[in-house]
């Protein structure tokens, strides 16, 4: 049986997205949360590239992917900066401490 590469890529997207979402759902460490965020976004980037391949507009999709990666890196940097501040003020990176605002 010859596997259609598109199916493989789709499976990869699903896997990455699943891992990312699970990470967001289950991790309590801020760094792990940011990593999970990254994985989820990378799933999306992979999906964009695959979409370009599927629709035959690979050029557009590649420039799209690069743009997304750049922007995503900015977001990650911002997140890490925030993490630094959290470590400084709370003394730990445990997201469970960040639950004073409720009700």
């Amino acid at each position: 049986m010859i596997l259609d590469p598109l199916i493989l890529v789709t499976a990869g997207v699903c896997l990455l997205a699943g891992v990312g979402l699970y990470g967001l759902l289950a991790s309590r460490n801020l760094i792990k949360l940011i990593v999970a965020m990254q994985i989820l976004t990378k799933a999306a980037v992979l999906a964009l590239v695959a979409a370009g391949a599927a629709s035959g507009r690979i050029n557009l999709s590649q420039s799209l992917a690069i743009t997304v990666i750049v922007v995503d890196t900015v977001v990650a940097a911002v997140g890490l900066a925030l993490g630094v501040q959290v470590r400084k003020r709370f003394g730990s990176l445990d997201a469970a401490n960040l639950a004073s605002l409720r009700r």
Partner: peptide, 17 residues
Amino acid sequence: LSHTQTGQLNWNIAGIL
């Protein structure tokens, strides 16, 4: 209902999912 606003990030993500 105010208990639904748990303030826990993981629960917030669960709401989104």
